[in-house]
Amino acid sequence: METAELIEVLSRGEDSRHQFKENFTNPDALAAEIVAFSNSAGGQIFIGVQNDGVVIGLSHADIDRLNQLISNASSQNVRPAVNPLTENVPHPNGTVLVVTIPEGVSKPYMDKNGAIWVKNGADKRRATSREELQRLFQQAGLVHADETPVAGLGVGDMDMPYFAAFFEQQFGEPLTEHKQPLPQLLTNMNLMNQGRLNLAGSLLFARAPQYALPAFIVKAVAFVGTDIEDQRYIDSRDITGKLADVFQQTLGFIVANTRAVQGDQGFNSQGQPEIPRIVWEELVANALIHRDYFISAPVRVLVFADRVEIISPGHLPNHLTVENIKAGNSNIRNPILASFAAKLLPYRGLGSGILRALRAWPQIELIDDRYGNLFKAIVKRT
């Protein structure tokens, strides 16, 4: 880092990726900061800088001592150990030690006392809520939301005619002729866990999953104008039911609230949708299958006069970026849902859905909001 870049960074103040510290003497305090950055998006600690960005500088003795402290804290006081990089950057007021901590690939990280720290704006806090801890384990690939048992949902909550039709179509034999008990069959199919339907089994095959999982629905609103603050709307709906039903009803809502273009067709013809249907199929399927089910929030579909926004809880998993998915890369957050979706929805997986949507309608903006913890697809209307 050059001096000019250091001055520019300090002038912006502290945020979730940049923290200023005058000095460190306690390895536990330093370890907590390293853990917080590792569990979040990574960042830099600038040592020798006051909270207001004023550089006080460090002596050579300070730098020698701090490098040893950083080495010891990151290897002995952080679990699993991490490898931050240090750089001595000159400044007119003295040397600043810049410690760069990458986002961790083995989350959750913790200090030697077992405390799990995460960034909270420019500060840090302990992660204590179940959902937050689950998301950290999810990022490490140690747990998947769709395999989590759902309290209160068992075999008796299955939509049996629907499941029987699916089973016969997939396996070529009637469910009634299958020899295994139904609970064992559902467990073998990764739809049941610990005697209860898991999240995937509930969303895919329960009669009314919204009663046990009220947050996992689609909230759809069609507005008159272009502003979400506008109180006037054309249509509003909470879309519930099995995943396949939610998918079809969400498509129906969007199509009903967007235009049909006549083009060269006759006056009495129905016309063609202003935006190809495959765009909605791919984006809605992506929102339902790849959303973060450790976040208790609905998928939102907002139809405006100039655009349609499809908003999924949860940013892109791990180090996946918008550029990655535009190149066809993928990271499956909910593997059970994804495997069944290919049999129940027009979903092909393999990271190709976004590419098909963009080929059919290039006017799509994709936003990975890591601070708001959501993913947004904005489709410009004609």
Rank of each mutant, 00 (worst) to 15 (best):
L288I: 09
S312W: 05
L320N: 06
I289P: 04
A342Y: 02
I289E: 05
N329S: 15
Y293H: 05
N324E: 07
G328M: 11
K326M: 10
S330E: 15
R300K: 14
V279A: 06
N329Q: 11
L350K: 14
I325K: 00
A297W: 11
E309P: 02
V279I: 03
A327Q: 14
V299L: 04
N329H: 15
D306T: 12
E323W: 04
N318M: 14
I289S: 04
Y293A: 06
R333W: 01
P313H: 06
F340L: 08
P335S: 08
F304N: 05
I332Q: 11
A342F: 01
K343A: 13
S339I: 03
Y347V: 00
L283I: 10
T321N: 09
I310M: 07
D306E: 11
L337I: 13
L302S: 11
P335E: 05
P317K: 03
A341C: 07
R300T: 13
L344Y: 04
Y347A: 03
L337F: 10
S296H: 15
A305I: 04
L288Q: 09
V279T: 03
N286V: 06
V299S: 07
L344M: 10
D306W: 05
D306N: 13
L316W: 09
A338M: 08
R291M: 04
A285G: 11
G314E: 07
E282K: 14
I278K: 00
F340G: 02
G328K: 04
R277C: 07
L302C: 10
G351V: 05
E323T: 11
K326N: 08
N324P: 02
V308G: 04
D306I: 11
R300L: 15
H319N: 14
K326D: 00
D306P: 06
T321K: 05
F340R: 12
L320Q: 12
L337P: 07
N334Y: 06
P317Q: 04
L283T: 03
R300V: 14
P313Q: 03
R348A: 13
A305D: 13
S296T: 14
A342S: 15
S296Y: 15
R277P: 03
W280R: 05
F294K: 09
G351K: 09
E282C: 13
N286T: 14
L350S: 15
A338E: 12
H315F: 08
R291H: 10
L345K: 01
Y293G: 02
Y293D: 02
K343T: 06
Y293F: 11
V301R: 01
F340D: 05
N334I: 08
V322S: 00
N331G: 12
A285Q: 01
E309F: 09
I310V: 12
P298T: 10
L288H: 10
A285I: 01
R348G: 15
N324Y: 09
F340Q: 07
S296V: 12
I325F: 01
G351F: 04
V299E: 09
A297P: 04
S339F: 02
R348Q: 11
L320E: 08
V284N: 06
N331V: 14
A297M: 09
D292H: 12
V279H: 03
A297S: 15
N334L: 02
L344R: 09
S339G: 05
W280S: 07
L345N: 03
R277T: 12
L345Q: 01
V303R: 00
V301F: 01
I325H: 00
G328A: 02
K343H: 13
R277I: 15
L337V: 08
